[in-house]
Design a protein around this nucleic acid. Structure first.
Length: 489
RNA sequence: GGCCCCGUCGUCUAGCGGCCUAGGACUCUGGCUUCUCAAGUCAGCUACGAGGGUUCGAAUCCCUUCGGGGCUACCA
């Protein structure tokens, strides 16, 4: 019943930043963005901060920052402006007040003087009788006398929307034809007693005024859609100008509860700190509740935009799977060029103080990256892996000391030292050739035993990047010095 | 309680009445490769919640049931 005929697509993402943007929010933002880009329409970003007790400037700024970091650029909204601003609802209060007053005047809404206690008592009674809880219409048709009596009493009044008998129907792009009987949609509050707007008012007014054509949002808002449509009606909006709705399924936590801080890492900021690539996060999130229809999974942002349609979005909830995100992130990291990889890696190395950021250090990091690119799943692993190349206080890890201090290991190290000192050109091929000849061929040792001892001595650990390359990077002097030091353990 | 949404491998999904003895990816298990760890590669395990229909034929359509979730605020 609602259409977009002839309208330029405009999709909006309108979070209420009561905390850091989480995985679910971002999945919604991603779908909003991808749909806008897919259709060649525009993407509008609006901050719903009508609940001033819960939304803070810090969260608002973090939300803006997160969207930018992910590469979800918007055409209208904070920082970029647009013809339909302002884009912070807290700056649009007079607009909402105007409409609330108009609705009162049109008798679409009315002042409700019921106190919270009275309202709760009504609901309690309804529940007791197994009826649908909701406003009972007490103040719908107050007489002037009743009103003045309430005023004399000093009672405040909220603005409440009148829900007429009947039903609201609309087509949800994901769920199909929806019908809600107004018996279960009670009169609802548009503005608080202090005049400030509620979500129910602000969201509907803004979507219309900002000319939004598509509302793709979480399914928790599905049952509030009739209320929004009611506001459109009161605003006098023509049917063909209603936005089209699409309610996205939830992203759940591993324990099947709604994703929250308690059952997993939900804050995008956390993933950023851990060293996940924005493109990996988006690629993974895109696969949560959507698929291109074939077996393709590795998608760039561009491909995602090309392939994304709302019709292919699933209606069932999806569980967040960290392992799959990690796998995708690892794949994306491996696909990076060395220069890209370097750019992403340096901040992690500097922040963890493995390097200070000097040119020499950066040059060495760049040489080391090729050998670690296929062994990490996130950038935060890099400092621990490369630390042996830069540390000024090298020590063999405690649990591995025993493995280089027995006589067999000493013999390996003694021999290695002799052979390595004789190498003319300190390259990994020469190092490998020298050690293989002496330790494997001549001493008859198994590679894992022989190289294991050298590995511990030079890198300090039983696990390291490839040994010979590591020694080349470490340099002749440091490598030999560490082997000598190991002989004293 | 009421209203609403949802239900294919452990997880994300493909599937829209015959191509399904159900495909892919991640995880897991085993093999290969191998200087450790990875990466790569091969193989394997495991699913249509249940019960009724409709039909020559159902994962696909209908009903019931069970299970999960949302809403039920002067939150969004």
């Amino acid at each position: 019943m609602s259409t977009t005929a002839g309208r330029q697509v405009k999709v909006r993402f309108a979070p209420s930043p009561t905390g850091d943007l989480h995985v679910g929010n971002i999945r919604t933002a991603l779908f909003d963005w991808a749909y806008a880009r897919h259709t060649g329409g525009s993407f509008l970003f609006r901050i719903e901060d009508t609940d001033t007790t819960r939304v803070t400037d810090e969260y608002i700024n973090a939300a803006i920052d997160t969207l930018k970091w992910l590469g979800l650029d918007w055409d209208e909204g904070p920082q970029v402006g647009g013809d339909n601003g302002p884009y912070l609802q807290s700056q649009r209060l007079e607009i909402y007040a105007h409409w609330a007053a108009k609705f009162i005047e049109q008798k679409d809404a009315y002042y409700c003087y019921c106190t919270p206690i009275e309202l709760e008592a009504v609901r309690e009674a309804q529940r007791a009788e197994n009826q649908a809880p909701g406003y009972n219409g007490h103040c719908r048709d107050l007489t002037p006398d009743q009103i003045s009596a309430y005023k004399t009493e000093g009672r405040g009044a909220v603005v409440r929307m009148r829900m007429p008998d009947g039903e609201t129907t609309f087509t949800d792009l994901i769920r199909g034809e929806m019908a809600f009987d107004h018996k279960f949609v009670p009169d609802f509050v548009l503005a608080r007693a202090d005049g400030s707007p509620l979500y129910t008012l602000a969201v509907a007014v803004d979507d219309i005024l900002m000319k939004v054509t598509h509302v793709l949002r979480g399914e928790d808002l599905l049952s509030s859609t009739p209320r929004q449509i009611r506001v459109y009606q009161a605003m006098g909006v023509a049917l063909e100008d209603y936005p089209v709705f699409a309610h996205l399924p939830f992203v759940m936590g591993a324990d099947n509860a709604k994703l929250s801080k308690r059952n997993g890492e939900v804050s995008i900021a956390w993933y950023r700190e851990k060293g996940f690539l924005p493109e990996a996060i988006c690629n993974y999130l895109a696969l949560l509740g959507w698929s291109p229809g074939d077996d393709r999974e590795d998608l760039t942002m561009k491909e995602l935009c090309e392939l994304f349609t709302v019709e292919k979005v699933n209606s069932s909830p999806a569980k967040f799977d960290m392992k799959k995100l990690e796998a995708i992130n690892g794949d994306k990291i491996r696909a990076l060029t060395i220069d890209e990889f370097l750019t992403w890696s340096l901040p992690f190395l500097i922040k963890s103080k493995v390097i200070t950021g000097s040119e020499d250090e950066i040059a060495l990091v760049k040489r080391a990256l090729p050998i670690i690119q296929e062994r990490i799943i996130m950038f935060s692993e890099i400092p621990a892996i490369l630390n042996f190349l830069f540390t000024k206080s090298f020590v063999v890890e405690a649990e591995s000391v025993a493995k280089v201090s027995d006589s067999a290991a000493k013999e390996v190290l003694e021999r290695s030292l002799t052979e390595l000192e004789a190498i003319a050109n300190w390259g990994h091929l020469e190092i490998e050739a020298a050690l293989r000849l002496s330790l494997i061929d001549e001493m008859g040792l198994k590679p894992r035993i022989a190289f294991g001892a050298v590995r511990i001595a030079t890198t300090g650990s039983v696990i390291s990047p490839p040994l010979f390359e590591s020694m080349e990077l470490l340099g002749r002097e440091a490598s030999l010095a560490r082997i000598r030091a190991a002989l004293t353990l």
